[in-house]
Amino acid sequence: MFKYAVKRIIYIIPTLALVALMVFLLIHMIPGDPALVILGSDATPEEVELLRNALGLNEPFYKQLLMWIGQIIQGDLGVSIQTDVPVIESIMERFPVTLMLTSMALVFSIIISLPSGIMAAVRHNTRSDYIFMIGTIIGVSVPGFWLGLVALLIFSFKLGWFPSTGYVAIWEDLWPGLRYMLLPSISLGLFMAAVVARMVRSSMLEVLRLEYVTHARAKGLGEWKVIIKHALKNAFAPTLTTIGTQYGMLLGGAVVTETVFSLPGLGKYIVVAINMRDYPVVQGSILFIAVVYVLINLIVDLLYGFFDPRIEYQ
């Protein structure tokens, strides 16, 4: 297993190098000039040229790329063109917000998806299964921003249970922090809950048909013991993969949720940076998210063996 982990970590390097290259190319290919965004469209051409020179934007494209790669190797993600603040500093300030948001969304989605998926599989082709299917279809179809706005309208504006704007970190003040995070994480996690629940249902249906489950029942084990201890453990491995990939989706979805709920997270930071053509911020932040995503997938892969002993790491 250790060898496998080391091998996987080594594989991460070319993946991230490719991501870095892609991000650099994509952001530089989008038309628009960061110097003009800083100076305003009423800046004179001379002012724009001066700033472009100062920011190194007039350097040949390959030189800018090499400079950036050189910086990354040294662990430096550069400095924001707009604010002059080191990108890594801003990421460290904002990532905890996104991490908390996505983690709470993950917990919420697991709490919803596991029992409902199991229930739907056990009561296959009954009314509750059909209701479950309709619910999950709605869950995967509703756009995140719409759900966020409706949630705000009902729970914040009409009922007054939650604030509509502002933010307090949970580690600064627990209860107010939770009040600020609950609505965004539920509206972010609903999509994932629907996807994971469908996966749990189909995996459980498959496993429940296998002979060893019949055997367990024949041994006289209680139904819930058979379902939880014997069926779920084996059905969980594909669900875990889904959770891993869906967590990446949560990081992407956080961009919208953070904008709707005015949360000071990494997603909102990236959106603003894209609009401002703040190249170092966009490049650095996306690379950082890619690192997180790759690491989560590595953890998921390593956890596989725990849930499915048939898997061998080579």
């Binding site: 309208l153 504006f157 007054g160 604030p163 509509s164 704007t165 709707v260 005015s262």
Partner: peptide, 17 residues
């Protein structure tokens, strides 16, 4: 307080936030 979304900013005003 920066609130970019128009509808959310109306809610925050009416909520006296």
């Amino acid at each position: 307080v920066p609130v970019p979304e128009e509808s959310v900013s109306i809610m925050s005003l009416l909520n006296k936030e």
